[in-house]
Design a protein around this nucleic acid. Structure first.
Length: 943
RNA sequence: GCGGGGGUCGCCCAGCCUGGUCAACGGCGCGAGGCUUAGGACCUCGUCCCUUAGGGGUUCGUGGGUUCGAAUCCCACCCCCCGCACCA
């Protein structure tokens, strides 16, 4: 931080310029960005998203809006608690990340075993860096999501949502970590990403008085079953399950209990004990032998499977292993196995009656341990599922497709009462805490009823009524609303607010963050100690947010003055609705859509959010940022390297729309350099200025500033930050540079006017430098409180634009000629067209545009001997804009423009340029070229 | 698989909605020159190919189509990125 930057921060702070209160009658603008989660310091990604709102806020302030940009900190959830926990357990990776990536001092890390300390530390450093970057935030309103007052707000919100029927109870299978006593989401896993519970079919074979319970995903293959596999080395048991006697693997039993079965073990034994016995299949009534199969995973489902060698590559190979002696088996087992032949049950075009055998042969698989069996299984399964048709071997299933047969088989099995279901994870899942997960049926969990069609329709209306920047994101919202199902909004662990009616549950962290923007109107009063959490009863909040109830009674009940209560209500009404909520696109499928749903549920239409801003995600030097890759860039690191203005401008120039922003050191360095060059450039320019008369060039600069202001204003209003900042820092600057370069002596007043607009356009992006520059230019007050420049103060001058465009065009054309033509030359004669030629051009072009008879015009000007085709071609070349100016500005004097620029052109081209006008007396035209000149296209003679 | 966004002249990127001003903005890199005590600063010019008069040729993922005319509109295809949920 330089002393100048500190100075401006202090000035803004002392003058409370970013601490808005309601001002009756003054138009307001309430802009927000999702609060960051405090398990790490804020990083360049956070900065990118927040900066877009910051630029917008400062821009709207100059436009005269009363702008509120508040900020808060997200602490609720289980990630912070989880990290703290892992640190406590001595996890070195977590510790290293704290120290190396986040830059936390070692002695602070020691204290991170307390999750609240961890969060408070990151909040402290993050707040400081955001302040140092000069964000125009009203810090009086900040809060943390575990603050008592905020909890009251969440409690109130859920009470009301429940009353409206949006919170419902449900029972669902989840991936469960028994250590955390919590469902384990995808990102919370060390192993098994993307794995979700699948429903296995349980088919019970008769084994005396017991049911030998096999598990399968393909019940339609029951008619092709030849035998049963158990793992001879695993532990199995007899158990009493839901009143029946079952034989399953021992590990299956705990899962059955978690899945709400009444399961009690009776006796356990090794799997080998079952080998050689026979069990009878339901439906087919066949008695099938039980064989040893080491490939059977006893921890998967029931640990018992039946074998369909015709269609399951694993089964086929395991059988052949025994038959061909690759696996040691008793004589009796071998004899049984030798007698087994695969039973085909379906036809599949492109395969024989034994698809499993085909694929194994094709892939050259030699035994049951070959890992390619996985792929072989997938191929057979997929082909059969899509194209297989069951044959007569399948009895009642004959003629059905696989998916039809599945349903039918389940139906038939259910009738035999030899059928059941259990959930299982098809692959191993391990929680980040290191514990193996399984499926649990979680009962009576609370859900947000996002599947409710009426609620969906309302949420859709929210999006429909709002502005979405960029427009492309809108469709994504609609798809998300369609796709969203009931969302579990309650959890057992982590930080958060308890459900007021069921204290066993904590409100899930995405679910407590949907309408919290409304709380910013209250948090100011909480922080200023005007009210306390005890004041925030549901009745008070009903009045504050809904205007419900009698303020006199409501306030009395909580010992608050009626005036204060009304003030809270007024403050809320003033700021609400949210005018802009901006976030990265990854939040569309969750947070932003939840935000829309909850506003739709609780607030009337006029308080629905008015604008959504979406941006891409940050990349570092072209790669996704991640701690594991080691390319994590904290906000602090970037700020210190490039300074607040450099950092801000670099962010502004990175990307627009939903494009991912690529953070590159090189670009940031460049941005920093640009900013440092502005003030010296301005000073130097003013130094060379004089008080001369206004020329065409001055009008041109003023006119182009007119257009730049419009571009930047429109871009800012649509959150096209990159375009706005690029127009300000690159295009506008280039215009000024061209002006300086083109004129020998800049006109002081022109420069002063232009710089005054320029500094205001720059100020949202680089407020520190802008204040300095404003001061330098003698501006009164603070530029962050100035008025946004108006194009009206910079009149458009199309003739000046036309004149300068022609000068540039002539220089370009002349350069081309000079490049191509070799040989000696000392001067370039430029013959501007005669007035007659100009009239001819205009009349001909007009006739053509109006589709009138061009022949008459041609005839009228036949003396000029200019082919009409030349004119038509030229009208195309110069384009609509120039043509329009040429036709509509009759008084425009091309000769004057070019003659005045002859000195400039000479300098640019490095050759003496002499401008003459065709048709005027006494011109020197030895090659008789002047007659060929047309508007914007003077004739040349090189001598 | 489902949903969303994309593929532009060495690299990054604008243009596409509202077809012609598009060989196509801007930045980076590279080349030449200028300025300067010096410069990785700044300023000019150049940077698809050809061209002794402002011209021509071939380009905007691929292949078709519509049109006097397409980077821009339509169809098909190929490729890349992102999201897909008990979690921030």
């Amino acid at each position: 931080m330089s002393t100048k930057e500190k100075y401006w921060l202090k000035v803004w702070n002392d003058k409370h310029v970013f601490e808005p209160d309601p001002v009756a009658g003054k138009k307001k603008m309430f802009v927000t960005v999702p609060f960051p989660y405090m398990n790490a310091p804020v990083h360049v990604g956070t900065a990118f998203t927040a900066a877009r709102v910051e630029f917008y806020a400062r821009f709207r302030r100059l436009q005269g809006y009363n702008v509120l940009f508040p900020y808060a900190w997200h602490w609720t959830g289980k990630t912070i608690v989880g990290m703290s926990q892992r640190l406590k357990q001595g996890d070195q990776a977590v510790r290293r990340a704290f120290i190396e990536m986040d830059g936390v001092p070692e002695k602070e890390v020691e204290k991170f075993v307390d999750p609240e300390y961890l969060a408070s530390y990151y909040t402290k450093v993050s707040r400081q860096v955001i302040r140092d970057t000069g964000f125009s935030i009203d810090w009086r309103r900040e809060f943390r999501t575990i603050d008592p007052a905020f909890r009251k707000f969440v409690e109130w919100q859920y009470l009301r949502l429940r009353e409206l029927g949006y919170v419902v109870q449900g029972t669902h299978p989840v991936v469960w970590c028994p250590f955390d006593k919590s469902p384990t989401g995808d990102h919370d896993r060390m192993e098994g990403e993307g794995v979700s519970p699948e429903e296995f079919n349980l088919i019970k074979f008769h084994l005396g008085e017991f049911a030998l319970v096999t598990a399968t995903l393909r019940p339609e293959t029951i008619y092709g079953a030849t035998n049963i596999w158990v793992n001879p080395d695993a532990e199995y048991c007899e158990a009493r399950v839901d009143g029946e006697l079952w034989v399953v693997s021992s590990s299956a039993l705990t899962k059955l209990v978690e899945q709400k079965h009444d399961a009690v073990p009776v006796r356990s034994f090794r799997g080998s004990e079952l080998v050689g016995r026979y069990a009878m299949a339901p439906l087919t009534g066949k008695s099938l032998p039980i064989l040893p199969g080491k490939f059977v995973d006893d921890s998967l489902a029931t640990g018992v499977v039946y074998s369909v060698p015709a269609h399951a590559p694993y089964d086929l190979m395991a059988l052949r292993d025994i038959q061909e002696g690759r696996v040691q088996a008793g004589r009796q087992v071998k004899e049984i196995a030798d007698k087994i032949a695969a039973i085909p049950i379906l036809t599949l075009t492109g395969y024989s009656a034994f698809p499993a055998s085909d694929v194994i042969k094709k892939m050259g698989i030699k035994d049951s341990l070959d890992p390619r069996l996985e792929a072989a299984t997938a191929e057979v399964y997929s082909a059969e599922f899509h194209r297989g048709v069951l044959t007569s071997g399948s009895g009642p299933l004959a003629g059905l497709t696989v998916s039809e047969a599945k349903k039918k088989a389940v139906e038939l099995l259910t009738k035999t009462e030899r059928f059941g279901k259990m959930y299982e994870l098809p692959e191993r899942v391990v929680c980040r805490c290191g514990t193996r997960c399984y499926v649990k049926i979680l009962e009576n969990q609370w859900f947000l009823n996002y599947s409710n069609p009426a609620w969906k329709a309302k949420a859709k209306l929210v999006i429909e009524r709002a502005a979405v920047f960029p427009e492309e994101a809108r469709q994504w919202f609609y798809s998300t609303i369609e796709w969203l199902n009931d969302w579990p909004c309650s959890r057992r662990s982590g930080m958060g607010t308890k459900l007021p009616w069921d204290k066993e549950w904590i409100v899930e962290t995405l679910s407590d963050s949907t309408i919290y923007m409304a709380f910013y109107s209250l948090s100011k009063f909480v922080n200023l100690e005007k009210i306390g959490p005890d004041n925030l009863t549901p009745e008070v909040l009903d009045y504050v947010f809904f205007g419900k109830g009698n303020p006199a009674n409501v306030s009395k009940a909580v010992k608050m003055t009626e005036k204060r209560l009304k003030e809270l209500h007024t403050e809320f009404l003033y700021w609400f609705p949210v005018d802009l909520r901006n976030s990265a696109k990854e939040l569309i499928p969750n947070h932003l859509t939840f935000f829309a749903f909850h506003h739709a549920a609780l607030f009337p239409e006029k308080q629905w959010p008015r604008g959504f801003g979406i941006n891409g995600m940050i990349q570092i030097e072209g790669k996704k940022m991640s701690k594991t890759k080691g390319n994590f860039v904290t906000w602090r690191a970037a700020l210190e390297k490039y300074g607040p203005d450099g950092f801000r401008l670099a962010l502004a120039l990175t990307a627009d729309g939903m494009d991912d922003a690529d953070w590159r050191d090189r670009a940031a360095e460049d941005a920093k350099g640009k900013i440092e060059a502005v003030i010296p450039f301005v000073k130097k320019s003013l130094k060379s200025a004089s008080n001369r008369e206004e020329s065409q060039l001055d009008s041109w600069l003023v006119s182009s500033v007119h257009r730049r202001i419009i571009t930047v204003t429109e871009a800012m209003e649509e959150m096209k930050i990159r375009r706005a900042s690029a127009t300000t820092f690159l295009d506008t600057w280039n215009d000024i540079r061209y002006y300086i370069h083109r004129t020998k002596t800049p006109r002081r007043q022109t420069l002063v006017d232009v710089f005054s607009a320029w500094v205001r356009m720059m100020s949202p992006f680089v407020p520190f430098m802008a204040e300095d520059l404003n001061h330098e230019l003698g501006g009164k007050g603070l530029v962050c409180q100035a008025d946004w420049p108006s194009p009206k103060d910079f009149p458009l001058d199309e003739e000046a634009e036309l004149g300068e465009a022609i000068v540039s065009k002539v220089i370009d054309d002349a350069r081309n000629v000079l490049k191509v033509v070799k040989g000696p030359r000392s001067k370039l004669n430029v013959y501007v067209c005669s007035d007659a030629a100009r009239t001819y051009f205009v009349e001909l072009a007009t006739a053509k545009m109006k589709k009138e008879n061009v022949g008459q015009v041609v005839k009228k000007f036949s003396a000029l001997k200019i082919q009409p085709d030349r004119v038509f071609k030229l009208t195309f070349e110069i384009g609509e804009d120039m043509l329009h100016k040429l036709v509509s500005h009759k008084s425009f004097d091309e000769f004057r423009s070019l003659a005045d620029a002859s000195e400039f052109m000479s300098k640019e081209l490095g050759i003496k340029v002499i401008v003459q006008k065709a048709g005027s007396k006494g011109i020197r035209d030895p090659a008789n070229k002047a007659k060929d000149a047309l508007p914007t296209k003077p004739a040349f003679l090189l001598e």
